[in-house]
Structures are given as structure tokens and as C-alpha cells.
Nucleic acid binder design. Structure first.
Lengths: 202, 202, 202, 202
DNA sequence: GATGAATGAGGATTCATTCAT
DNA sequence: TATGAATGAATCCTCATTCAT
């Protein structure tokens, strides 16, 4: 009946704790989440948590890294191997990817970084290098390839890949603040892509 | 250590405290700012601060309300009284206004709301009603007036005034996280307006 | 009936806390004394204690400094102003002083320093400079003055004032460990002084 | 990080652990030494350590007993079998023995007892019975035998064998606190013996 | 009104000890 | 036996809030 209050599962613990922490942070934010709460969610004692993460801050960093890993790289991979035209790629995989962000863990991470980032410069640096700069690079790559192929024409957008992300950013923030005030974020993002495509198509 | 920056008449006290709190929150965020720090900055004792604001949370709300008030109303006013063409208005006053946001107190408030908002639904409601919805309304008004005047044509953008704000939002977040990674937010915003104008011009 | 649970007594607090801490440390040692226990003894809240002493360690240092201050200086003063012969001085005031040490707060401090000193090098340095070296200097002064006056003769003891302190040290340790095993520390110290006097008398 | 320093046969385990504990306690003191640290030094798991010692306190007691055993008995043995004159014995083997103490494990034990003893009355009792009283007895024996033999004369020192130990005690404490402030402990001890011999020689 | 000394609940972290494997 | 993952009581310290003066 009663679960053993003692289980050896070294392999999975860090991941389990990290996931529990993600959930807790997502709900309450970093500062308002008690370490004990994370431990409880992970079905683990406070002490064990500290065995894997030296401090609450370390745990936070692990959470960020954990979510971030591989996401963008996957996109990069697709970009390089796709056989779609640039426009089709933007309307297809790129659009899909961007529209998924506001509902994904990444959105939570963004919110956490906005809250706690200023006190964790190294984490921001990490995030910038591993997510932001890669993301911007991928977008740039798509655009410049389109130009090379004669699909697109050079324009001011070439150096402002941020324009592709702007509606995503707004959607992320909107959802986290005004979940109840309907906003069709998919449409928002698609429309922005439309604007951009219109602008850069040869 | 730091000299009190505010020392005026009694009647200004709440305002002074609110301003000191704004500065402190801007620097350290809500959770990391101690009430004592705010009192010190305001040149006031902790006890007096509590005379005006029942709790730290109340103080926070006062800060948000204080910064927000009047901003958008001013814009609304201008919109109704301007004699510029819609396009000229967007390229002129609207553009100026939007570009100022990322460096303004509003940007700080946005960051604070992203961090603390989820724990203060009433504050979000307040902010939505007094800033966001008004802001969106103004933009809609400009666009629809342009259509009425035959300057613009109806389009999907009519119902997505958020598109005007998206680059602003991204700029706000970018600056707060990656101040050191240069981004020409003015150009970003102007380019977005350009895209939008191109799209909606008749 | 009930005491006010709130009293403003800024002036006396540090001293009161320091004394309570001395008692607690004397009884349980530094490591085993809880900060809350000190606060309770001082009739004060934990928080207030931390208002005056940044950390438990700071409190410890304050306790040591507090006890140490002026003790030795008083002796130095007496040495310089006495009109007694050197021998009489040693048999009189010096003997009295040394015999008081094992039952005095200094004994407690010594015990604490032996326990915690290795982790507080700065404190040891402070103690050495303000107590030990001064103490040794006073003894040396007495001896060398005796020689100058023709009362004593030069000997190996001149450079080993520690010999005057040795029985005191043993008494301090003995009392703290074997309080129940009788040892006439007064006699021990007096006998040692006798040995030394016999040795150095001209 | 640090290699286990002990890795021998099962039957030596308790001894190995005890030695590792001694080293650790010597370095950091009892309270600041973690059981895990001891286990690591002994090249043993925490669990195994607890198989041999029920608690950290038990381990501590074992350490004390371990070091203490046989030391004094050896001296007693020598006293009874020596063919040296009493004075020669004091200047020779006894002097050597006493001068070794400040640099020996016994010094460490003394320091530990001063720190932790008050919380372990049984340990103090044990130490007193097995070391202190035996030590004092040996000294007394030497002196009284000298008197029997006509080498020494009866004196107050007969009942204060502690006088032989006083400079040793001071040396032990001095070294543990002021290792950096030079003190010729050998000379200190020899001089004290000289004083005593002068005093008691017939 | 003002002040800032005083309070104490709350939360992060440590570490002796246990126990499933 | 032997291991070291897991536990949780114990403690230091912080900081919003109160209240005597």
C-alpha cells in the first residue's frame, strides 16, 4: 500500500527535479518558489535536491539549460536539409515553429529570464549564445539563401531578423500576462510573416 | 550613503516614495528590493512609508499606476486633434512615441509586470484596461480613420493593431536582457511601420 | 503584569547581547550555541541580534574583544606606577592577578579561542597583539626592572616570561576540564612564582 | 579528489577509520569535520563507517581512546626499569618525553578535549583516569623515589607534579594558536625542569 | 505625524544518520 | 558486507511589518 519512502534512482533524479522545478517556477516564478516545494513536486527530499544542485540558483540555471538544449539546433538542421523553396519554408516549417513557441516551455523560460536574468548575467550570456544568436542566424540564413536563389530581393530586413521574432515575443508576453484576453497569436505571427514575405519577395 | 533624492513637502510624500520605489524596482526588481531601501532613497523612514502604503504590494501597485497614468491618454488626445494625414501621423508622432517606449519608465513597468503580474491579477486587469486596451484602440482608430479617409485600404491588419506594438515589445525585452548586444530598436520599429504602411496603403 | 514585549534600548543592546553570548558560549561552546539561544538569554529577538551583529561569527569576535579590552592595560598601568620592590610586586599584585585568571572570563575566552581560533586567524592575531604580547611584555618589564635595580640577576628566564604564565594556562585548562578533580591552582601559581623568584633573585 | 590514505585488511578497518578521523579532527576540529570527510579519508563508505561506530560521537571517543592508549603506560614502564639517577632520568627520558608532547597526537587530543570535553564527561573521566592521573603519578613516583634515594629533598613540589606539566600545557596551546609566533618550547620545558631540579635537589 | 528599534515567520542550506540495493 | 542515495531535523539569516517613543 504505502510507497517505499526510499528509492534509489540516481540516473533520473536530476531530470525529475529539473522538471519539477520548471513546473514550479512556471507557476510561481523563481523568487516565490520554495525549494521545498520543488522537492515535494519531484517526490524527493530537500536534502537530495541539494545533492544534485548546490544552490537554488544552480537549480534555476539547470532548468534554463535543460529546456533550451537542442531546440534551435533542430531548426538549423531542418533549414539546411529542406528541399522547400524559401517562401514555402517560411510559410511552412518556420511558421509552425514560431507559432509553437508561445505555448512551449521556451515561453516560460523567457518569462523567467525577464524576471531573474538581470541577476544572472552568465545565464543571459548563455541563453544569448545558445538560443538568441542561433535563432537570429537561422532566420538570416533562410533569407540570404532566398536571395541567392533569386526568390527574394535584398532589403533592410536582411539585417533585422528580429522582425520575424517580434510577434512571437509579443505573443509570449501577452499569453503570460493576459491569458484571458483573447489574442489569436497564430494569426498575428502568420500575418507578420506575410508582411515580411511581401516585402522581400523579388 | 546615498543621499535622499527626494525631500519636499508633505503632500508630495506619496509621490516621492513612489518614485523612489520605481527606481529601486527598476534596478533590482520587486522581490529583491527591500522596503528599507525604498525608504532610504525617498529620504523617509520605514515607518512613514508604511503610513502611506499598507504593504509592499500596495506600494508596487501604486508604482505601476503612477507611471501608467496619462501616458496613453495623451496619445489619444493627439490622435483626435492632429491635422496630419494618417500616414504622416504614423511616420511622425506615432513613430516617435513608439520609439520612446523602450527607454521609458513604461519599459520598466512592463518588465515588472512580467515578473510580478501573475501574482497580481487585479493589477494586470488595471494595466490592461488603462494601457493596453487604450493603446490598441488608438492604433485601431488611426488605421480606421485612414480607411475612412481613403488613405488606407481594409486589411487583416485592422484587427491586429498588436503588429504595431510587436517590435516595441521585442525592443523592451531585448534592452532589459541584452543591453550589451547592440540592436537598433529605432530602425526595427521604423521598419515595421514601413512594412505595415506598405501593406495598408490604398 | 506582562512585560512590554517591545522596548527601545539601543544604547545597551550590544553589550547585553554580548554578555548573553559570553554566557552561552561559556556553557556550550561556540558551535553548540544557537543564535536563538543567545537572543533569548539577552531577552531579545533573533532579528535584533542580527541588527547589531552581521553574523554569528561577528558576534563571537565581539565577545572576545569585549572581554579582552582593558584587562592587560590595567596591569601595565599598575606596573609602571607601583612603588613596591620587584619581588614584592610579584608576590603581591602580580600573584593576585595571575591567580584570578583561571576563574575569570579570560579563562572562558581562552577556551573558546582554543576551540574556534584556528578558524578565525584574525581573531587570534587580535588576541595575540592585545593580550598575549602585552602580557608577556609586562612580565618582561617587571623582570628587567628588577635587574636594573639590582634586585634580580640576569638569567634565562628573562626571555621566557611564558614561565610565569605556564601554571596559569594549566589551571585554566584544568578547571575547564576537570573542575571536579581538585587542584589548588592558587598554590600551583604561587609555587611557580616562588621557583622563579628563587631562580632570579640576585 | 584526495586519495584514500588507508586501504588494508578488514580487520584494520576500525583503526584506519579512527586514524582518518584523528587527522580530520586535528585539521578542522570535531564540529567542523563531516563524517563523510572521515569516510573519504579512510577510503571507506559512510555506511561502513557507521557499521563500526554508531554515531559521530562514538567515533570521537574512539579517537581519543585510540591515541591515548599505551602512551603513559610506556613511560611508567621505563620509570620502573631505568637505572638512571632521578636527576638524570628527569634531564634525559622525562625531558625528551615532555618535549615531544606539543608536537604529538596527544597535543591534538588535548585541543579536542578542551573544545568538546565539556559535552562528554565520560570521556573526560576516561582521559583523566588513563592519562592525567597516571601521568601525574609517574612524576610523583620519580620525585618520591629521588627522595627515598637521598637525591632530592621533600618540598612543596611533591604534591604539585602539575608543575612539570605546566610548560608542556602552555606549549601545546601556544602551538595550536600561535604557530606563527615563534616560541622555543624545548627551551621552555627544559628551563622549567631546571627550576624544579634546583628546587628539589638535596 | 515621524522614527527606526524590535519582532518573528519564513526560507535556504547543512549534515548526521538511515536503508534499499 | 559495502555502498552512497536519500532523509529531514536543525540552524543561520532575511526582511516585511509593527509599535514604543
Amino acid at each position: 500500500m504505502s510507497k517505499p519512502r526510499y528509492q534509489r534512482r540516481k540516473q533520473d533524479r536530476p531530470q525529475e527535479i529539473t522538471e519539477a522545478a520548471f513546473d514550479a517556477f512556471a507557476e510561481k516564478g523563481y523568487a516565490s518558489t520554495r525549494v521545498e516545494e520543488v522537492a515535494k513536486r519531484a517526490g524527493v527530499s530537500k536534502g537530495l535536491l541539494y545533492l544534485y544542485f548546490k544552490t537554488k540558483e544552480e537549480l534555476f540555471k539547470a532548468v534554463v539549460r535543460n529546456v533550451v538544449v537542442r531546440r534551435v539546433d533542430a531548426l538549423t538542421e531542418i533549414v539546411e536539409t529542406t528541399e522547400l523553396s524559401s517562401e514555402a519554408f517560411i510559410r511552412g516549417p518556420a511558421s509552425t515553429f514560431l507559432k509553437e513557441v508561445p505555448g512551449s516551455p521556451v515561453a516560460v523560460i523567457i518569462r523567467l529570464l525577464i524576471s531573474e536574468g538581470p541577476r544572472h548575467p552568465d545565464l543571459l550570456e548563455y541563453y544569448y549564445n545558445n538560443v538568441v544568436s542561433k535563432g537570429l542566424a537561422v532566420i538570416k540564413r533562410i533569407v540570404s539563401r532566398g536571395i541567392e536563389r533569386g526568390e527574394f530581393r535584398p532589403s533592410v530586413v536582411d539585417d533585422l531578423p528580429h522582425l520575424f521574432l517580434a510577434p512571437v515575443m509579443l505573443s509570449v508576453v501577452w499569453r503570460s500576462l493576459f491569458a484571458k484576453k483573447a489574442l489569436d497569436t497564430d494569426k498575428l505571427i502568420d500575418t507578420q510573416l506575410e508582411l515580411l514575405l511581401t516585402h522581400i519577395k523579388a
